[in-house]
Each structure stands twice: as structure tokens, then as C-alpha cells.
Amino acid sequence: MPELARAAWSRRLLLALLLAPALLWLSLLIVLPHLDLALLSFRERIAPRQFVPSLAQYRTFFTEPLYWHVFLRTALMSAGATALTLLVAFPIAWTIAKLARGRMSALLFVVCLIPFWVSETVRTLGWMILLRESGVLPQLLVHLGITAQPVELLYHDATILVGLVYTSLLFMVVPLVGSLESLDNALIEAAYDLGAKGGAILREIVIPHAAPGITAGCIVVFMLTLGNYLTPTLLGGKNSLWFTEQIYNQFITRFNWEQGAAFGFLLLALSTAMVWFGLKASGQRFSDVMRRT
């Protein structure tokens, strides 16, 4: 009996040890800083090194049109980028999951992975070299006679979107492939056999089956896009207006940690709200979706 008790005890200890790194990581690097930020966001500087509890930071957000304008813009652009990513990723995922065999599907995965072989900075700078007025693509357009003069392809919202989609593609493809692979081909054949055409099969069979994967991909991509800093700022140039940039500005160039913390929490609230809304709208449960990511 003591032998058994000891075995149970050491099993529990082993479990604790296995989870320890994750728990330490979570508490030291995620929970504690967030608590600190939460405290920061609810105070106001009244004199050098003197602070009082206050809602001023949040009030500023709502009274300064600029901030919520950028906030809203970031949310809408992120939603748009997510939808675009889904549109682009779906055929790729379908090809990997259902059409390509062996090497081919591995190759396609690698194609989606290539953007991540270089750092985001290098990748984005590459885009800038490609798209700037004196860059490769505008020159090519002139060369082909499509435009009379080199056009500036940088610093447009469309450029930001393209960059974001490119960066997010893999995070949409992976959960989609997972959920499409688990779709029994016989279901598609059965639907076809019962008289359905491509559109109806997609609507009635494929999308309902892949819904957890779609939701998972959308959540991940939306969060990544919302929190992206480099791509919108570099590709968007003087018009980027991304909310993370506002947070960076508050923290780094304004030394206004209180405002930055408040902005950070508003962004957190936004992504939480969007995730909740996405789950509600697609009728998914959080646990199901998370298993797909």
C-alpha cells in the first residue's frame, strides 16, 4: 500500500514537472506582465513620477477621434485580410488535402512555408524593393507597356493587404488542410451521386465539415494581422495607420506607458470580442476549434 501511494505521488510529481516549464512561462512572461500593464493603464501622471488612479487613458481613446479611427480601421482591415487569406488559402489547402499526392503535397506545404524562411523584416524589405517606384515591378510594367511611367505600388492599403495575406497564408492553410483531410471523400461522392453540383457540395458538405478549421484559421490569422506591426508600417508608409503602431509610439517615442497599456488592453478586448463573435457566428465551440489549430 505505501508502495502504491508512493507511485501515485511520484506520478503526480512527474506531471507537475512536465507542466512546470509551460506554467512558469505562462505566469512569468504572460500573466505577470499583463497584470502590470493592467495596473499601468488605470493610472494617470500628474507630475514627474507622481501618478493617481484614473480612467483618463481610456477616456483619451474615446475622445480623440484619431485613436478610435485607427482602431476601427485596423479591425476592418484585419477582417478583410482574414477573408482574403481564407479565399486564397482554401484552394491551396484543398489541393494539398485532396488532390496532391505525397511529394506534391509536401512541395505545396513548403511553398507556403517559404515566406517564413526569412525574417519578417527581410521579407517586407524585399517587398519594398519589388514595389517601390524605382523597383522591379513598376519597371516591368513600363517595359511591358502596361503603364507609361513607373507607378508607386507602395504605401497603398491594397499593398498592406497583399503583404498581410502573404504573411498569414500558412496559418490559414495548416488548419484548413487538417480539417479537409478528415473529410471522407465518400461524402463528396455521395453528394455528387445525389445530384449536387460543385457549389452545393462546397456549401452543404465541405464548408460545414471544415467549419472548425476555417474558424480556427480565421481566428489565428485575424489575431496575427491585428497584432502585426512591421508589415503595415513598412508597406503602408505614411498612411499605414495601424493600431500596434500607436501602441509602439505611446510606449517608445512618447514614454507614455499608461496610454500604451490602455491601448494594448483595448486591442486585447477587440481580438477577444472578434473571436467570440466569430465562434458565435459560425456556431463553433472554442475547445473544438482550438483542437484544430
Partner: peptide, 21 residues
Amino acid sequence: VGPNRRPVNMVFQQLALFPMM
């Protein structure tokens, strides 16, 4: 003539009932 336009229907090996319906 595609399967969706044939006067033929099929009962699949694993039945292939649509679980989402």
C-alpha cells in the same frame, strides 16, 4: 453523363451519411 445526372444512386460502403445534417 456525370454521376449527378445519372438515374443511378449509390449506397456507399461506409454509408457516407452526412454527419452535418
